[in-house]
């Protein structure tokens, strides 16, 4: 079947199988920042935005996204330049496999803080990001960078 997705601002017609999950479709279409870390909706490496909200692309059927807007790390990296710089300065991307999804989450988190849905506290921010597993850093370095970027004391 054919579906239409607005990926990173551009409408695209994509040929899919009804069994395809969004993750596989996006990777096939060349959005390789979207990673498959587990396939059970647990690691968060496949996070993308649908209509502005973060979702697990491995756990969302592609067909159900027909007509919706999808944003991947490729689409927001330039806007997130400051954060990228801080994360690199802290040395907090190690293998980097979890990094693009974290970038997407941070983009969403910033918006949620702005519209008052998430409080700008360490506890609330950690909770917001809990679905993004990282095996390398132990999270502490990531959070040093994230708190610095968001200006959380």
């Amino acid at each position: 079947m054919k579906i239409n997705l607005k990926i990173n601002g551009v409408w695209k017609e994509v040929e899919i199988d009804p069994s395809d999950y969004l993750l596989d479709v996006l990777r096939r279409e060349g959005y390789l920042s979207v990673k498959k870390g587990c396939d059970t909706g647990t690691c968060g490496a496949c996070t993308v935005l649908r209509d502005g909200y973060p979702i697990l692309s491995c756990a969302t059927l592609a067909s159900t996204c027909d007509g919706h807007e999808i944003t991947t790390a490729e689409g927001i990296a330039d806007e997130m330049e400051d954060y990228i710089k801080i994360l690199a300065e802290e040395g907090a991307e190690q293998c980097g496999f979890c990094s693009p999804a974290l970038l997407v989450m941070l983009y969403a988190l910033k918006k949620e803080i702005e519209n008052g849905k998430v409080k700008k506290t360490k506890e609330d921010i950690r909770r917001y990001l809990v679905g993004n597993l990282c095996r390398c850093t132990g999270y502490v370095g990531q959070e040093r960078a994230i708190f610095r970027y968001l200006g959380v004391e």
């Binding site: 979702i55 697990l56 756990a59 969302t60 969403a108 917001y128 809990v130 679905g131």
Partner: peptide, 12 residues
Amino acid sequence: ISYIWSVQLRNV
């Protein structure tokens, strides 16, 4: 609800 798994899951 806020303790159920992750933001990304609850959004779907």
